[in-house]
Design a protein around this nucleic acid. Sequence first.
DNA 1: CGAGCCGTTGAGGGGATTCAAGCTCAGTGG
DNA 2: CCACTGAGCTTGAATCCCCTCAACGGCTCG
Lengths: 245, 245
Amino acid sequence: MLMKTIPLHLPAEALHPQATACLSCEVRGNALFGVLDEHALGRVHAHIASQEALGDQAIYTAGRPGSAVYTVRRGIVRFERFTEGGARRIVRLAGPGDLIGQEALLGRPYAEEAVACTTVHLCRIPAALVMQMSHLEAQLYGALLVRWQKALEHAEDWVTDLTTGLARRRLLKLLGRIAGFEPTSDLIWLPRREEIGAMLDMSMETASRLVSGLKREGVLELMPPSHARMHRGRWRQALEEMDTY
Amino acid sequence: MLMKTIPLHLPAEALHPQATACLSCEVRGNALFGVLDEHALGRVHAHIASQEALGDQAIYTAGRPGSAVYTVRRGIVRFERFTEGGARRIVRLAGPGDLIGQEALLGRPYAEEAVACTTVHLCRIPAALVMQMSHLEAQLYGALLVRWQKALEHAEDWVTDLTTGLARRRLLKLLGRIAGFEPTSDLIWLPRREEIGAMLDMSMETASRLVSGLKREGVLELMPPSHARMHRGRWRQALEEMDTY
DNA sequence: CGAGCCGTTGAGGGGATTCAAGCTCAGTGG
DNA sequence: CCACTGAGCTTGAATCCCCTCAACGGCTCG
């Protein structure tokens, strides 16, 4: 494969369009290719496509042979699976800086469906590119392992936090997790009631009742569609009250 | 580091003690070092310690800086976490062929506590050994990635199967999973009721009622302590009855 | 304006929890 | 030998959390 190396100190106008995007990336520090130096980065950005997905749009679907991994730059992505009874279950969320679809690097089909929750900005990275880089850059392999372990710990955190105890506690935990994706603002993405149900294994009516309750208590201020303002102080207090019992 | 290379075609008596163990390993085909050829294997086995853990004995504890990963050769291992309320939650099981404690390869402390459920046979593999081998054997890196992805999928399967729906369905799913560790026999490990509770987020009384129910229906025949004979046909039938509703 | 989706709220029922008592069984010591 | 003990398990009764079924309101869109 032949590609032109572009010195990164040239003025922005002279850069490959994607190079500009990579340099100003919101998550460059903790993205997969963040471990690469500028020289190495110069060789890859032409192959990385910036792409966008609107809410409820699938990024990839379960079972499809994967040819790329994605870095989430902005927004929230959910992973969906189905029980044998046909019930939808959301098993994990991913946010800015997370790497999704790693199965593709092993030549495996995607294990679940990845769907955008909010508008999502992604970098599509061809699996072949990563695998060929890996032979050259030992650091990249290390970064991959770190990301895989992070995904694993997220999955286990999900079990401890979001499937344990009373419905109200699980909802509060979920809100904390979503708010963590938006640390600077208190305007958060609020899933549809049916989605909350799929994440926390409760009916959408229960989700609705609990959300309404939090609204009455001043923890949430609903801002339809799919958004809310969260009072972090009251949120923390509500959670502590649950955990003491 | 200096070590003697031992030709693997020598009679067993002349081999390094651990070499004999490695060659006759029950899970060599799908263990981490299974990707290595005999020559490479000859260089490592002296550093791998075979070890054994009895039921309820910790293999490693959460937060401890990890210096080794382990391959499970025999038995079942559980991973334990605690919710902020202090409730114990078992978040995953590992069985023969599984690699546990991968965090150690990243220089991270263990993320949770690993405890033997049954008597467990392990290979303790120093993290430093894997990391130094990795530079030499590209295949080993690939095998590592596969294992990490497998652990991730296990964790997500756990959410879809074991935290969804009625308590009876979750218990049946758990039994299927445990029976999967012992494909050739119908004598399975049956956790204590309190442990079942920690895996499926139910009280130990509920677990007891359900187990008793399955006993009455002839799905299980209890063989204390901590064992049972499972009638796989009736198990499958019971599960299908749940999933149709 | 009617259709359809999402969300809310109520009523009734059922599954799971909690509290509690009694059981089995291995181990201990009189 | 047998009472005593304690851990694990079982079972019952009352309570409660959550589900299901249902009706209704707000909103967008054809």
